[in-house]
């Protein structure tokens, strides 16, 4: 399976990773090779096979509705790139 330049540009936007023009050919080749590898899946007969999301056939445990966390804003914001008045600061969305 080949992956087109347009596909690469599309997934790069979805994944929010800037891809420079000169990187696209290399990605085309590498991702194409990976997808070739993955295309072996097509050979498997999976008729009536239930998809497997988890290794163990376990069910979810639920937590009681009790507050267990305390305010640790200072510790968390000490490692943040930009904060002010307790808020995380990010650049504006430009539409």
């Amino acid at each position: 399976m080949t992956i087109s330049r347009e596909d690469i540009e599309k997934v790069a936007v979805l994944a929010r990773i800037r891809v420079e023009e000169e990187q696209v050919s290399a990605l085309e080749k590498d991702l194409g090779n990976i997808l070739d590898l993955v295309d072996q899946l097509g050979a498997a007969d999976t008729e009536s096979v239930e998809p497997m999301a988890h290794p163990l056939n376990a069910v979810q445990r639920l937590r009681p509705d009790e507050v267990t966390e305390t305010n640790q804003r200072e510790a968390f914001q000490a490692i943040a790139p930009a904060t002010e008045n307790g808020l995380y600061l990010v650049p504006r969305v430009i539409e």
């Binding site: 009790e66 507050v67 267990t68 966390e69 305010n71 968390f76 914001q77 008045n85 307790g86 808020l87």
Partner: peptide, 19 residues
């Protein structure tokens, strides 16, 4: 009382990011 996936309080009106 708490969030759907954590034990943080959901009380309204707290100082930003303290919950």
């Amino acid at each position: 009382r708490t969030k759907i996936f954590s034990g943080s309080s959901t009380a309204y009106g707290a100082e930003p990011n303290t919950q």
